[in-house]
Design a protein around this nucleic acid. Structure first.
Lengths: 137, 137
DNA sequence: CTAAACTATGAAGTGAACTCTAAGGCAAGC
DNA sequence: GCTTGCCTTAGAGTTCACTTCATAGTTTAG
């Protein structure tokens, strides 16, 4: 399978696949060279790219993926270690979600304040007074 | 107030404050020059930086902030427009939160699968079979 | 046979928000 | 009067995951 064919199959560009290779995410099991120096991809390359996409989908950087794939290839990690790693990832994402929740609290406050400005100036003033009191703490 | 004093007060570095100035987030109302060409910051600069932090806190980029601050300075936007903008921001953040939720679903599945690998190999196999069936769709 | 379409390479560009460097001027403490 | 520690500037470096560019060799369709 040539690079464009693989790219189409996986919804990537040929550039990106070469980039992954340069980053060390693919190796001899996935790529051979033909006599014209064109890359020839095995079916394992498809599985590899699926794995890459899956881990990208759970928020892994390419640097992290490189380590994960190496460990995967060499069977370095115990089940226990993998479970700890997953736990850490979950915590990390929960933290980011909490940040967004905090943003949403602020935004909903802003929206309510703007509504009050139109409908109920007394309420708007009260909200602002309370906000200032909290900020001053 | 000199730059380092302001930086300490606001929990920023002097570099960052100069950077904000270069980006057009601060102007003559906030910065004057002394005869030795040092920057001298007014109290308004503190309010300005607080405003910048607040909007950064709800996920605004500096480019966005530049527009927001200009509108704020010139009173360009109607209440209605501001409310629409807040609504869009809320949607944007809800979308990002949903992405994280999707990551969490995957991660919790991975964790449960690993647990099953240890405690209940039949369950692990069933999970994997079901996963493959879903992937094939 | 030729032109389009594919392949290869290394290097540079993108954007966001800083962060740091180099090279120098001014000020305060000992 | 010397060191330390501010201050100034323009500009380069950082991180991430590509993307684009420039240039050139190979294959294929008409």
């Amino acid at each position: 399978m040539k690079i464009q064919e693989l790219a189409d199959k996986m919804g990537l560009t040929a550039h990106t696949i070469r980039f992954y290779e340069k980053e060390g995410l693919l190796d001899g099991r996935h790529i051979q060279r033909e006599k014209n120096n064109y890359r020839n991809y095995s079916d394992e390359a498809i599985e590899r790219l699926k794995l890459i996409k899956k881990f990208q989908g759970i928020g892994c950087s390419l640097a992290e993926l490189k380590t994960i794939l190496q460990d995967h290839d060499t069977n370095t990690r115990t089940n226990q270690e993998v479970m700890e790693w997953i736990g850490q990832k979950i915590d990390e994402i929960e933290r980011k979600k909490a940040e967004y929740d905090h943003m949403l609290v602020t935004l909903h406050w802003m929206l309510e304040y703007r509504k009050a400005l139109i409908d109920d100036p007394d309420k708007a003033e009260a909200m602002m007074a309370q906000f200032r009191a909290l900020s001053a703490e």
